[in-house]
């Protein structure tokens, strides 16, 4: 299992505000790695820097041997890396089906292969199937989250970046979403999961990094971190 994503000494600023102050971490092929941290710790900023929606001040980002450091954002998906962004960000005026089509936007393997993957997504996320002609804006929060995941799967990713997929969802739906993430990972997709819901994230992850105000405070095996008194006090409610 080689390193799939490696981030080295990443610095990201918003003007004078330093949001990420030199973090380094790796995600290996086949893993679920979680990046946990409180609101404002810099989790989204980190994912945006990897996806190049934000331009890092300095540092190196490498995915499957390709440097992302100066890559244009829209080219990254072709390498097999995509993001399910915070707040879902589905295209509200497009239908469910059209959102999935956008996930497959860069694919060149023909309409049959893409059609087969629509079915794959509908099988994995059956709630979407009956709503395929509905505009995404009319879906519930949970359904939108599923659509955002389905849309990302349509590019046949090697690795998914997930930004707080449990945000704003009922406990039952959170459970369902986390099961879906585990299933996707079992089928061979590497996952970097960003969560404020540290308890859930540590349950399904292999390894974890704890982000505190732009620096990595702790890292290690997810189960061990879940039992660490400091982590328990700060993130798991004692």
């Amino acid at each position: 299992m080689g390193t799939m994503l490696s981030v080295r000494d990443l610095h990201v600023s918003y003007g004078a505000i330093k949001a990420i102050k030199g973090i380094s971490f790796d995600v290996n092929e086949g893993e679920i790695v979680t990046l946990i941290g409180a609101n404002g710790a810099g989790k989204t900023t980190t994912l945006h820097a990897i996806s190049r929606l934000l331009h890092a001040e300095s540092g190196e980002i490498e995915f499957c041997g390709h440097s992302l450091t100066h890559m244009e954002a829209y080219k990254i998906i072709k390498l097999g890396l995509t993001q399910v962004p915070e707040g879902r960000r589905v295209f509200a005026n497009l239908t469910v089906q059209q959102n999935l089509e956008m996930g497959a936007y860069t694919r060149t393997d023909g309409p049959d292969a893409i059609a087969a993957d629509y079915e794959m997504v509908f099988e994995r996320l059956p709630r979407l199937k009956e709503r395929r002609r509905q505009t995404a804006g009319t879906l519930s929060g949970g359904e939108q989250q599923m659509l955002a995941i389905g849309r990302a799967l349509m590019c046949r990713p090697k690795m998914l970046l997930l930004d707080e997929p449990s945000m704003g969802l009922s406990p039952l739906l959170v459970q369902e979403i986390f099961h879906i993430i585990q299933d996707i990972n079992k089928d061979g997709v590497t996952v970097l999961l960003v969560e404020q819901n540290a308890k859930k994230a540590l349950e399904i992850a292999n390894r974890a990094y704890v982000l505190e105000t732009g620096t990595i405070a702790m890292s290690g095996n997810a189960q061990e971190l879940a039992n660490d008194p400091k982590v328990r006090a700060a993130y798991l409610g004692g």
Binding site: A73, K75, I76, N93, L94, M102, G103, Y105
Partner: peptide, 17 residues
């Protein structure tokens, strides 16, 4: 559809390639 996607959310559109 890609034009509509860009008009709604440029960042998400870029994530789609």
């Amino acid at each position: 559809h890609a034009m509509l996607a860009v008009s709604e959310d440029k960042g998400a559109a870029q994530l789609m390639g």
